[in-house]
Amino acid sequence: MQKKILKFKLNGELMELLVSPSDTLVDVVRDKLGLTGTKKGCGKGECGACTVIMNGQSVNSCIVPAMQAMDAEVETIEGIGTSDKMHPLQETFIDYGAIQCGFCTPGMIMSAKALLDGNLSPSRLQIKETIAGNICRCTGYVKIEQAVLAAADKLKASKDK
């Protein structure tokens, strides 16, 4: 098997590494680069646990061919906030009780971030449509939706300042 060189930006940092043609993006992020925040729940694009943002859009990294990330900007949960300065979504997920087992959380937050990056006034339905591909078995989704709404408000308020 021929290894290919993949170059892309991961959380703002330029990456260059060898991948197999059959590798998916989640293989690269989790196994090769060790960023295990992104989870793998089904391996078939059916649960959203592996959601990352690629060029501004949420994707299931378990079915995106790794090579498709060539020259792309990829964001994962590790790249959107630090413990000193969390992303507002991370704060509101914590404060609104949107996190239980936490396995869906990284993907859920990345889906929500892709939405809020382009829309700070989403409707409840838009939020539901955004996270409909992210299965959560713990929360019943309501607190997650509330957390996304609250994060939108926070972001809006900080922007208006």
């Binding site: 960023l35 992104t38 590790e78 997920f93 914590i94 404060d95 996190i99 959380t105």
Partner: peptide, 14 residues
């Protein structure tokens, strides 16, 4: 604040 929540929100939970 739930004790496990920060690690989980940051993607740092094992």
């Amino acid at each position: 604040r739930k004790l496990d929540a920060i690690e989980k929100a940051m993607g740092a939970a094992t």
